[in-house]
Simulated assay, not measured.
Amino acid sequence: MLVYIGAWLCALATTISPQWLTMSTALLPVESYELGLWETCVVQDVGGMECRAYDSLLGLSSDLKLARILMCASLAVGMLGMLVAIPGLHLVNSCREHGGSQTKRTLTIKGGVLGVISGVLCLNPVSYMAHLAVIHFFDDKVPDVVPRWEFGDALFCGWAGGFLLIVAGLLLVTSCLCSQVEPQPVLQRRYQVMRTDVSFRKRSEYV
């Protein structure tokens, strides 16, 4: 679950970060440009940074629209997966009165599956934007003097977040499929032994 939460925070940082793609020009070496899902920024070497949000939603390219939709869907599915998986943890006692360990195991598996789906949804837009950057960077039709977009820090954060979401989901699913023992079998056996011992003493005293 800790890996799950950390991966979801990485996906959130990727979504709101403007550093999806970066570009620096030879004409203005003191300035670089950054492209994000919600805004574009101009960064100066002296430390200044100026960002501007996109003016129109309908005027965005289809790539940015698709990336926005998939990243928001990844965050929503990941949050739902965490809310479903937390009651299924062995440390949480909320479901023991309503179905026992079987209900907890089912909730944990569902949360893990949602985590895997969230990771896949996160990896798709990040990998697609990186693919477009590679295609445009090695395009022979574009002169060499023309600046090109390169990978930003948000892409690496998105890859890490999506991969960790998948890992966390698989860990939750496999931990439930491999564990077939009740959380408190030892206490139940001790209680049964104590009851048997008490009943045997009562019979001995009666005889």
Rank of each mutant, 00 (worst) to 15 (best):
C41G: 00
C41Y: 01
C41I: 00
V42F: 01
V42N: 03
V42I: 13
V42T: 12
V42C: 02
V42S: 10
V43S: 07
V43G: 01
Q44R: 09
Q44D: 10
Q44G: 13
D45K: 01
D45V: 01
V46E: 03
G47C: 00
G47N: 01
G48A: 11
G48K: 04
G48M: 05
M49K: 10
M49D: 05
M49W: 00
E50F: 08
E50R: 11
E50C: 06
E50L: 07
C51P: 05
C51I: 08
C51F: 07
R52F: 12
R52I: 13
R52L: 14
R52G: 14
A53D: 12
A53P: 06
A53F: 13
Y54T: 07
S56T: 04
S56F: 03
S56V: 07
S56M: 04
L57N: 11
L58Q: 13
L58E: 15
G59T: 07
G59N: 09
G59I: 07
G59L: 08
G59S: 12
G59M: 09
L60C: 01
L60D: 03
S61F: 03
S61G: 15
S61E: 14
S62K: 14
D63W: 14
D63R: 15
D63I: 15
D63H: 14
L64E: 08
L64A: 06
L64F: 12
K65R: 14
L66K: 09
L66N: 11
A67T: 04
A67E: 02
R68S: 04
R68A: 05
R68Q: 11
L70S: 01
L70E: 04
L70H: 02
M71V: 02
C72P: 03
C72I: 14
A73P: 11
A73G: 10
S74N: 04
S74A: 13
S74I: 02
L75E: 02
L75T: 03
